[in-house]
């Protein structure tokens, strides 16, 4: 079926089986490879992107539900050359190791900061439940606090 939506501010139209996970449409049809496949079971969070500003695990989100929605992926998180505060903080704290899970974490964090501008450690524990095998959680926590600071500082 034909499905139309905006991705990273750009209108797209795809012709796909309605049940195809949005993840595969984003990766293989729209060629945006920053959204990762980790488990296909909504368990690891590597495929997290935003649907109308909400964090969604795209491996478990049929493309048909994207109709008319605003989708944002890691490639659309920055505004032009200006990295998103979350990305800036990730740079400052040198968070990634292998880097595979990081886009999902950054997308989850961006959604968190939209809802809770100054998350406490408890908020972070309660909201960020993706999986990182390299064990970068310690730096991520620092980066999340730093991202909140950057985001809340008028430029």
């Amino acid at each position: 079926m034909k499905i139309q939506f905006n991705i990273n501010g750009k209108a797209v139209s795809v012709d796909e089986d309605a049940r195809t996970p949005l993840l595969w449409v984003v990766r293989d049809v729209l060629d945006l490879k920053g959204t990762k496949f980790g488990c296909g079971k909504a368990a690891c969070g590597a495929c997290t992107l935003h649907v109308n500003g909400e964090a969604v695990r795209s491996c478990s989100f049929p493309v048909e539900y994207a109709e008319g929605k605003e989708i944002t992926t890691i490639e659309g998180l920055a505004k032009g050359d200006q990295l998103h505060p979350v990305q800036q903080a990730w740079m400052e704290e040198i968070v990634p190791q292998c880097g595979y899970c990081q886009p999902g974490f950054m997308m989850s964090t961006a959604a968190l900061l939209d809802k809770i501008p100054n998350p406490t450690d408890q908020d972070i524990d309660d909201n960020i439940a993706n999986i990182c095998r390299c064990g970068t959680y310690y730096r991520m926590r620092k980066a999340i606090h730093r991202a909140a600071e950057i985001k809340n500082t008028p430029s």
């Binding site: 490879k33 990305q87 990634p96």
Partner: peptide, 18 residues
């Protein structure tokens, strides 16, 4: 700073899966 940092933060890195 890691030489691969910026690409990894932008989601631009190419892994085997990509």
């Amino acid at each position: 700073v890691r030489v691969d940092l910026e690409d990894k933060v932008k989601g631009a890195h190419i892994f085997g899966m990509d």
